[in-house]
Amino acid sequence: MRENDVILQTVSKVAVFIILTFGVYLFLAGHHNPGGGFIGGLTLSSAFVLLYLAFDVETVNAGIPLDYKMVAATGVLIAIFTGMGALLFDSAFLSQTFAYFDLPIFGKTELATVVLFESGIALGVVGVVVTIIISISEDV
């Protein structure tokens, strides 16, 4: 029942990279501008979903051999354990902090622990969305 997807596949090959880049940008921009872990994660997963739509599941899995269940679990664990990290410094669970550093190339940069937490959220979202979509689409 597969139709001829040449146009979709060709466009996807380019578009996926644009979306992925945009997703990473959104993830990093979140601190000061619109974006963040949740949106970043959703955008990244929409790129994956586009891949799965344009190509079949086997091809994509061969190209990106990731177990998305593990990705999701890793994300959730990162979110929880970065929260626990605060306990080691005698702060409340999930406390975040930030500081300014002078880095080469970037100059004065703000580094915040919330990035670690957000990366957990992003991974969790990507893992769950792709897991759900793959498992439903495989169940024919």
């Binding site: 979140g30 601190h31 000061h32 501008n33 619109p34 974006g35 963040g36 872990g37 949740f38 929260g83 999930l94 975040q96 930030f98 703000e110 915040a112 919330v114 937490f117 957000e118 959220i121």
Partner: peptide, 16 residues
């Protein structure tokens, strides 16, 4: 929270 994006500061810090 060191972030200018209020929405995200709420999500990641105030109401993490």
């Amino acid at each position: 929270a060191g972030g200018r994006n209020i929405v995200n500061s709420i999500l990641g810090d105030f109401r993490a």
